[in-house]
Structures are given as C-alpha cells and as structure tokens.
C-alpha cells in the first residue's frame, strides 16, 4: 500500500516572530479522516478544469479539547489559479463558503486545506501559511494539510502534514515553511456503515453502480457471504487435517475462540423460546396485514358512498381492537 508510513514525532519549532510562544502548541497531533471528506475530494478532483494540475479546498471538522486530535468531517472546494510565477486563491469565495457551511454545521470548525497532488512547493507553503495565520486561519492550532494523489493508474496516496516556520530570511517568511508529516486514520462512522457497504458492493461491477436493496435481500446476501466463509474455513481445516497445508496456530486460536462463543442452552429451551417468539411475530404480521386491508376498505367506503360512513367507522373500531392486541404482542 502506498500510504504505509511510520512516524516519529518531533516537537516542531515554534514560529519565530510575533507569536507569544505560550499559545502555540508543540504536542503531537493525530488526524482522523471521515470517508465523506475523502469522497468529496475525489469528486472535486474529477471536476477540475482540464488545464489545472491540482485543485485545492478547505477542510472542516472538529478538534478535541486539547487540540491533540482533529477529525476531518467535511470539506469544500476553493478555486485557485496557479502559474509558474504566482498563485491566486479565491479568498472571498473561501470566506463566503465557510460562512455558508458553518450555518448548516455549526459544530464544525476550520481545520486546514487539501490539495490533489502529492507535491509540496512554494505555493503550498504560501497557502499553508494563510490557513495557519492569525485571524482567518486556524491559529493558535496548527493547520492540517492533506494531499491526495489522483494520478490515474496508481494508488491513491494520502498524506497529512502540519507545518512549522523555518528560520530563513524574514522576507521569505510568508512563502516558506516546513511540512511535518503526521499520522492519520480513516474512520467510518456507524451511521455510514450501511451506506458504505452498498457503495463498496459496487466496486467490482463493471458499470460501477448498485441497486438499493430491501432488507430481505441484504439478509440473503449476508447469509451467502457467511456460507462462503464457512466453506473456506472448513476447506482449510480439511486441508490441515489431511496434512496438505501447514497449520497456523493463530488461525487455530481464532477458530477455538469463535467456536466457544456458541451458547450453551438445552434444545428444549431453544424450542420453547422459538415457539413463543415466532407466535408473537406471526401474530404481529397477521395483524399488520389485517390493518392494511381494513384501511383500504375504509378508504374505499368513504370515497364510494356517503351513507356508508357508519360501516367504515365500525371497520375502524375493529382495527383499533386489533392493534391493541398488536401492542401487547409487540411488548413481549
């Protein structure tokens, strides 16, 4: 994998000028990235103008109280022009968009910026210094810079950096800084799990799309997967028993642990619990269907005939009694 790096944290040098050192932090920083932000960056990278080599944007998220951990939750694109000599970032746009985003997500704050090329150059330093600056930027917290390479045919490499000033000539202070790599982690929020599952189920399809399925289909798929895994494991075990494959102690331990998880209940108990529960469930299903029919009937009667209203209400009365039973059953 392209982004398997190891890190050693060095306290970064504090900015040399006009900054009270007490406020600046040198503690290590770890970055957590939500999948949504990454997807957003990829989308932006696809929508860049043909002549642009890289695009940049602002990262938003939350910062832990001591500032030692940041979570990148969201991001938006910012327009910029880059030529040999100069770089121009649309700062008004950045400010307007930041305002709009903060209105919808009041909890999120400015974290840093991203670029869709792994390169770090003078312009990167210039932009980085803007994002880390006092006032509009993230000061006194460090600004996070995330690079994501989007070269076709290669792995997508993600890197995260924070910066520190380097002691060159004061005139060059604005466009020079030292990028310090920091470790990051990609995190999936529980709420996104079901969405991500569906998205990644499409990754092997040729047309890159997947249908949104119903619960019962999802269950079917999950069961198929489990069966497949069981087959794989039993095949492996059979091979080991036959002596064709070298046995692995780690896998053996895992299998032992899993097998010991099987609950110890007597078959009679299982049978009894099963029977009582299934009756409840089936009753609820039956009642739900009855209600559906009743409602249909009631609506037909109501629209077909004014005089039939009395019949309808009788039907509704039955419906109510029916659901009363439903709750008792559901409550079990």
């Amino acid at each position: 994998m392209a982004d398997k790096d190891s890190y050693i944290h060095l306290a970064r040098p504090l900015p040399v000028v006009s900054v009270p050192p007490a406020q600046a932090t040198t503690s290590p920083l770890s970055v957590v990235i939500n999948a949504q932000a990454l997807f957003s960056i990829l989308d932006h990278s696809l929508r860049r103008n043909a002549d642009q080599e890289r695009v940049i944007g602002t990262l938003l998220g939350v910062r832990s109280e001591d500032g030692a951990e940041v979570e990148i939750r969201n991001c938006f694109a910012v327009g910029h022009n880059e030529s040999q000599e100069q770089v121009e970032v649309d700062m008004d746009y950045h400010k307007a968009m930041l305002g709009l985003h903060l209105k919808a997500n009041p909890k999120e704050v400015l974290i840093g910026w991203y670029a869709t090329s792994p390169e770090l150059n003078t312009f990167s330093a210039l932009i980085q210094n803007f994002y880390a600056s006092n006032g509009d930027g993230t000061f006194p917290h460090p600004a996070v810079h995330l690079t994501m390479s989007t070269v076709p045919g290669q792995d997508i490499a993600i890197r995260t950096y924070i910066s520190s000033a380097v002691g060159v000539h004061p005139d060059r202070l604005a466009d020079s800084c030292l990028f310090v790599p920091v470790p990051y982690e990609i995190k999936y929020v529980d709420a996104e799990r079901s969405g991500l599952e569906l998205i990644s189920s499409a990754k092997n399809n040729e047309n890159r799309s997947a249908e949104v399925t119903t619960d019962i289909h999802a269950l079917e798929k999950a069961l198929e997967e489990v069966l497949e895994m069981l087959d794989r494991v039993s095949e492996y075990v059979a091979r080991v028993v036959a002596g064709n494959t070298q046995a692995s102690a780690a896998i053996g331990k895992f299998l032992m642990n899993t097998l010991s998880l099987a609950p110890k209940v007597s078959p009679a108990d299982v049978e009894r619990m099963f029977n009582t529960h299934i009756q409840d469930v089936l009753l609820v299903a039956y009642l739900a269907n009855t209600i559906r029919t009743q409602i249909d009937l009631s609506n037909r009667l109501a629209s077909a005939n004014f005089g039939a209203i009395t019949t309808t209400s009788a039907a509704a009365a039955t419906t109510t009694t029916a659901t009363n039973t439903t709750t008792t059953a559901g409550g079990k």
């Binding site: 994998m1 392209a2 398997k4 990454l38 997807f39 990829l42 989308d43 990278s45 696809l46 989007t150 792995d155 997508i156 990609i186 569906l198 998205i199 990644s200 499409a202 990754k203 890159r208 799309s209 997947a210 249908e211 949104v212």
Partner: peptide, 22 residues
Amino acid sequence: PVSIHNSHLLTTFLHQLDTPPT
C-alpha cells in the same frame, strides 16, 4: 428505483481501502 453510482477514481480508492491488511 434508486441505484448508487461510483466514479472511476472512487472505485480505485475503494479497492485500495479494502486490501487485506499486510
């Protein structure tokens, strides 16, 4: 009916995310 669509870039990325841990 709703279906979900991934871009090429995203497909690459997903494959990369799901690589078995070394």
